[in-house]
Amino acid sequence: MVALATFLQRELRLLARQKADWLNPVLFFVIVLSLFPLGIGPEPNLLRIIAPGVIWIAALLSVLLAAERLFKDDYRNGVLEQLVATRQALWPFVFAKLISNWLSTGLPLVLLSPLVALLLNVDSASFLAMLLTLLLGTPLLSLLSVLGAALTVSADKGGILLALLILPLYIPLLIFASAAMEAAAMALPYYGQLAIMLAMLLVALALVPFAVNSALKINVS
């Protein structure tokens, strides 16, 4: 626990110093969202229909953008190698990364959601669903992007490779999150979708740290 707090403090300090790392993806999210009305047309009803899919696809892409650099600096300056070499448990480091990644990419999306709802003409019932799906879904996005980043730490070619690896894994989340928002727009209950999202989050929370742990060890040794 002490180790977790230490690592978390370090991560947050790094985030505070490298503001571009987390500001750029958030900016990207807003820009992508504002492109859709320009491309499709400003018709309010049309925007309301496409809003769930558009919001979630923009969220996926902006989280992906932040994932690229998650472990890169720690790999380049030798921090990862030191951690593996000390033979101590990696999990405080992994969880600190997870928490700081969610705080820097997931939380801003949740906080921005009222603005997004205004931009895309989302009504209040769908807005609540959007807030809930973002709250449940963004931690899962963080888990999967940490996994993707850990797999590709020492890869020579990054970028598109990471997208190819994690985007297929995001698909179930995309389906259930946008379905929950569509159900809310039609005034139907959407607890089922939220429950499935919660289940996926819990399963991922139980399994992903193991995979990240071994991916980091493979990449460093």
């Binding site: 797999l151 890869a155 020579d156 070619k157 490779l161 190819l164 690896l165 297929p168």
Partner: peptide
């Protein structure tokens, strides 16, 4: 993804 990842190192 598997093919691309194996060739990236």
């Amino acid at each position: 993804g598997v093919i691309a990842l194996s060739g990236a190192f």
